[in-house]
Design a protein around this nucleic acid. Structure first.
Ligand SMILES: [Zn+2]
Ligand SMILES: [Zn+2]
Length: 317
DNA sequence: GCGAACGTGACT
DNA sequence: AGTCACGTTCGC
């Protein structure tokens, strides 16, 4: 409550144009971004700009970041050590989080077949977890992922093993990239994939592409094969069957795709209308709202089950 | 049963 | 189009 209100209050000064210390064009680590990122990578950039001011506020310690606790809780299991595993300033590690995701891209996550297709079955669930320097984590929380990626176009996604969630998660554990990969100059720890934005052109190295491509390919397979098979994806066979296959059941809740940028965000911004209005609004943070779910159900239903694969690819290309 | 979040309609 | 509120679904 208190936190919440404080964050709400923050909105006023910025909205009225007070500059604070926010100087977008001179930001030390935004030079790159400002240089080449004006092209619309994601329309998040604009919105992120807006929220950057909030970040600065929290960064300056003017008030505790509303979700600092949550961040800490989420970050800990991934990198117990106080060190950031790599030094990509514009990178972002993606940790996994439990919430259910669209079956279509998530099939057999629990699969006993984890060995058979030992690829990124776990990834679709991955959600963003900012692991920049722990100290600035809270501050950069809701701005680094999408705004900075626009500049350096470097997103690292970490597939975290279904941490101890014994529930059949075992398969996902080390299943992914056991060997690890290299990205640019630094090595990626096993379980990490790198995403890049399309227009980066030469920027997207083979290493990055291969890894993500593999990831997506895996998703696609699952997507198509599970489209209407009433898969034994344990939990939600019912849902998928109802909503996208039988076509009979009218209004089943759609599920987040789990692979789009918003889906992979891990924490709520705390300042958007949805966050502020969570009590009564019952809506997910606007920055976490699945791109697919934003679309009209009519235009998305099929995509989820059949076109999903291609669409997923389009996300990268 | 509870919390998260989707669907929807009313309102601005 | 964005916000708000409510009902509802869904996973745990
Ligand atoms: Zn939010
Ligand atoms: Zn999504």
């Amino acid at each position: 409550m208190a936190n919440m209100s404080s964050s709400v209050c923050m909105e006023t000064p910025h909205t009225h144009g007070h500059a604070h210390s926010y100087t977008p064009t001179t930001g030390r680590d935004f030079s790159l971004q400002m240089d080449s990122c004006m092209n619309p990578v994601l329309d998040y950039s604009a919105q992120m700009e807006r929220y950057r001011s909030f970040a600065n506020f929290y960064k300056n310690g003017a008030a505790p970041f509303p979700q600092a606790a949550k961040i800490a809780r989420l970050a800990t299991p991934i990198f117990p050590s106080p060190m950031t595993p790599w030094s990509c300033d514009n990178g972002m590690l993606w940790g996994r989080k439990p919430p259910a995701v669209n079956v279509n891209v998530n099939v057999n996550v629990n699969g006993a077949h984890a060995h058979a297709h030992a690829h990124r079955t776990a990834m679709p669930r991955a959600e963003p977890l900012n692991v920049h320097m722990p100290s600035k984590m809270s501050a950069d929380n809701f701005l680094s992922p999408l705004s900075q990626v626009g500049g350096a176009e470097c997103m690292n996604r970490l597939k975290v093993p279904p941490q101890s969630s014994g529930s059949g998660g075992g398969g996902g554990a080390g299943e992914a990239e056991r060997g690890g990969a290299t990205f640019g100059g630094f090595a990626l720890p096993p379980g990490v994939i790198v995403m890049t934005t399309l227009h980066s052109g030469a920027g997207s190295s083979v290493a990055t592409m291969t890894d993500s491509a593999f990831q997506i390919a895996a998703d696609c397979q699952h997507s198509s094969s599970a489209s209407c098979s009433g898969s034994n994806a344990s939990t939600n066979a019912t849902v998928s069957a109802n909503s996208s296959c039988s076509g009979g059941a009218a209004k089943r809740k759609r599920k987040r795709c789990g692979v789009c940028a918003p889906c992979r965000r891990l924490i709520n911004c705390g300042v958007c209308s949805s966050c502020r209005n969570r009590k009564t609004g019952h809506q997910i943070c606007k920055f976490r709202k699945c791109e697919e779910l934003k679309k009209k159900p009519g235009s998305t239903v099929e995509r989820a089950s059949s076109v999903g694969a291609a669409d997923t690819f389009r996300w990268f290309f």
